[in-house]
Simulated assay, not measured.
Amino acid sequence: MSDAAPTGLLLVNLGTPDDPSEAAVRRYLREFLSDPRVVDLSPVARWLLLHFVILPLRPAKSAEAYRKIWTEAGSPLLVHGRALADGVQARLGSRWQVRLAMRYGSPSIPEALDAFEAEGIHRIVLFPLFPQYASSTTGSAVQRTFEAAADREIVPAISVVPPFFADAGYLESQAALAREAMARKAPEHVLFTFHGLPIRQVKKADLTGAHCLEQPGCCEVEQPANRMCYRRHCFETARALAERLELDAGRWSLAFQSRLGRAAWLEPYTVDALTELARSGIRSVLVVAPSFVADCLETLEEIGLRGAEVFRQAGGEHFQLVPAVNASEGFVETVARLAEAMAP
């Protein structure tokens, strides 16, 4: 019988405060928004923005929002993440050791690597839980993991699961949840909402500097200039889900949420899309948020509460938010399969 150490699987999501207090949210936002991949300004400009604009005001507002969705078990993002890790561990068995980490907050990436090291695990598959690639999510998680690993006497062998925005298992997991909602109440329109990004960050992924948002239909066909483009990944995910849900072209649309600051971000904005749908006569809408694999503040509060209110105030009547894939059976199988394919 082999006594080889198991392979480590590190699932990484964005992060969450330790609790919904203003102090905990401030700590979390300070770490999150100090990341130069998230706020890609000069160090001085980033520091001034964070300490003179964001931290004096935003923690109180964000803490209030977190309290609306916090559960007895804790942060929904963390609860769903732990359930996913447990499900994947059961699926993969003793040949693997699965751990969950957050890019910001706790449990941290260095803590997870410490645990692997203590268990004699030096082969790790890193799984950033972001279907569509962005420097501020996948890029940051990969960078932090490799930085934390490089400080060790024994640097582990790490392989990275690539963006899975077009993976059939991921798409079917999300589509199955949407079908369940549609069976309860057939919507007039389906809105796919993705986390937004500043335009400048989207364009940075185009190394040619001449394609992204410069050419008509720049996201319609994959080519070298847009291969790692977040916007193209979002469009491809939305189109694939619409096809699986058998939606005609006029019955679905795409929008971007969670804008921060005054810079130009990807459009249309989700809040505007919901308003326009209601004003155009759409009375029932189904909202799917495929860039989030775990329900969190951005799905439950921003869309599920505030988005629903915006839609109804504009004349809409029936609003449904499809759950994230969370720890659904299909997504557990998808994560396990993709991890096995990348085992070093």
Rank of each mutant, 00 (worst) to 15 (best):
A176C: 05
T237D: 08
I199D: 13
V221E: 13
E188V: 04
V161E: 11
A255E: 10
M182V: 10
V190Y: 09
R239M: 15
R231H: 04
V155T: 08
E246D: 14
L247Q: 15
R200C: 13
V190D: 09
L245H: 12
S258P: 08
E172I: 02
A181I: 04
R179V: 02
P224V: 04
A205S: 12
E222D: 09
E153C: 12
G169V: 01
L207K: 05
A264L: 10
E220M: 05
A150Q: 05
R239E: 15
Y230P: 02
R239C: 08
E153P: 06
Y170D: 06
C234R: 09
L245Y: 11
E222A: 11
L171K: 02
E220N: 09
P224N: 05
I158K: 07
F164S: 02
Q201N: 15
Q215P: 00
Q201R: 13
P187W: 02
G261S: 12
Q257S: 09
A183K: 12
Y170P: 07
R231S: 00
H189Y: 07
E243G: 03
A242D: 03
A240V: 02
A264D: 15
A181Y: 11
A168M: 07
L191V: 03
A150E: 12
F165C: 14
F235K: 09
R200E: 11
F194Q: 12
L213T: 01
A183M: 11
L171G: 00
W252T: 09
T208P: 12
F194D: 05
W252F: 13
A157H: 10
L197R: 00
E214R: 15
A176R: 15
R244E: 08
L213G: 00
M182I: 13
V221Y: 02
Y170R: 09
P216W: 04
A186M: 11
P216N: 01
F256I: 04
A175M: 11
A178T: 01
L177H: 08
D151H: 11
A238G: 07
